[in-house]
Design a protein around this nucleic acid. Sequence first.
RNA 1: GGGCCUGUAGCUCAGCGGUAGAGCACGGGGCUCAUAACCCCUUGGUCGCAGGUUCGAUCCCUGCCGGGCCUACCA
Length: 525
Amino acid sequence: MSEQNSESTYYVMTSIPYVNGRPHIGFALEAVQGDVLVRHHRLKGEKSRYLSGSDENALTVVQAAEVQGAELEEMVAANAEAFRAIQIPLDVRYDDFIRTSTDPRHFPGAQKLWRKMDAAGDIYKRHYQGNYCIKCERFYREEELVDGTCPIHGTAPEAVDEENYFFALSKYQDKLIELIESNTLLVQPEHRREEMLSFIRGGLEDISISRQALRGKGWGVPVPDDPDQVMYVWVDALSNYITALDYAEDQSDLYDTYWKGDGQRVHVVGKDIIRFHVVFWPAFLMSAGEPLPTIVNVHEFLMSDGEKMSKSRGNVVDPLALVELYGVDALRYWFIREMPRNGDGNFSHDRLIGRYNQDLANDLGNLVNRSVGMLHRYRGGVVPSVPADRASALKALAETVPARMDAALDAFDFREAVAAAWEIVTRANKFVDDEKPWEIAKAAKAGDTDADARLDVVLADLIEAIRIVAVVLSPVMPSGSGRIAAQLGFGLEDGDAAARDWSDALAGRELPAAAPVFPRIEVEE
RNA sequence: GGGCCUGUAGCUCAGCGGUAGAGCACGGGGCUCAUAACCCCUUGGUCGCAGGUUCGAUCCCUGCCGGGCCUACCA
């Protein structure tokens, strides 16, 4: 499975959203999933990088600016900033954020990719006419239109009659099948892999990859040597994953390290754009003779109280509002714990609150609170010094957790990863009830020296178990884990894989007074 | 219209040839270190509907119903 060492690299990329609106909860999910992955691999000591960005060259953006009566560049900049800025409230940490309309790295990189595809003989010109829906960024056949309008947007499509460039996608059908079947390009979860395979087997046709520059007032990446054409948005958008690595340069350390190395190159995308990432993008790269991504992980969508989220229904959930209401840990934990592998997730405030109160406040938070509380009551707040190699049920369990989390996250099973960590929490709470430290303390006070020694072990075990939980959960809840760490008098660090192992690192440390780490969310009836 | 996915306890989800599991919620009991938290036990399902294959199906096949994603162009 994963025998990564400190030399292997891990490059995670979110899809880059259109900038004609504000961040949606679905994108927050994606950003958090990616963040959990990078933080986890970084914790293990792998050289990791996390990229996000904004897709700014689409016609929809031009149109949105017109509708809003806004200056195009200003609107784009403002919205891009909104997406970049979600890092703060969501505890997400990008290493890089690329804007496709303004970043100097992007245009030349996208054009370099185009030239290479062209040099491979995969780009050709073709004349056609059709009905183009700007909002959908695609053409419709006559019979697909509803009363002459776009079936999705209900607006009249633009009659387009022009000559565009096409990409010889059909050439790559067999190679793509081979890549996916062999898991050289791993598509997760499994059913998405099957879906893509059957789609490709159904036959691939060449695709249009440019449009006339005039249609978008010149907005977009110009096709090399043909200023009348700009790149179809997906060619331009997908290339961001490498243009951000200075692909345009003749020599780039970033590109060599993260795209040419034998590490992982991981896309985290929604189910609506699998095809672009699993079919088009790898085909473009093969054509250009560049390495391919190694993994495409697909997440599903979020429903709101059982209904599809949509602006017209007015049930769109704002992720930042949730952070303000419930805190970032509640939201991040909910994404990871409740989002199913197959099928859409269903968001509701009640479920988020319930999950937070039960798991974070009652189970984990209370475990920390009662353990630290007893440490103060019986040992003056100082962690007892007992050998780390003592036999312990908690230790035995805790030692299995890192490997289980690694395996679960390698398979993008976030829930399973958290479940593994949670076994320590559950077991530790039971441990307290079984051991009854308050009774041991009474016996010790009565002069029982064995009891005194036993109390040291029980308390030390609890503190150590909690320390490990804080460490392994830190990729999921950086803030919450940080607060637990502070409560235990230590700091979280990247690249410290050994921190996940049972030790006596905290022995002798004096801890601050117990204070709730995850206060309950009180709901008014 | 076509392709693919999906429908399992009140809720959120696992399981996917040998007649069902977890967590939460509900009910009962225990404990007191703790954020009225924690621990134990119980209750609870004709596994969307109807056929079929099989010694045997929640798990395979067909159809239907409900939900979802896609539908790439000289169709």
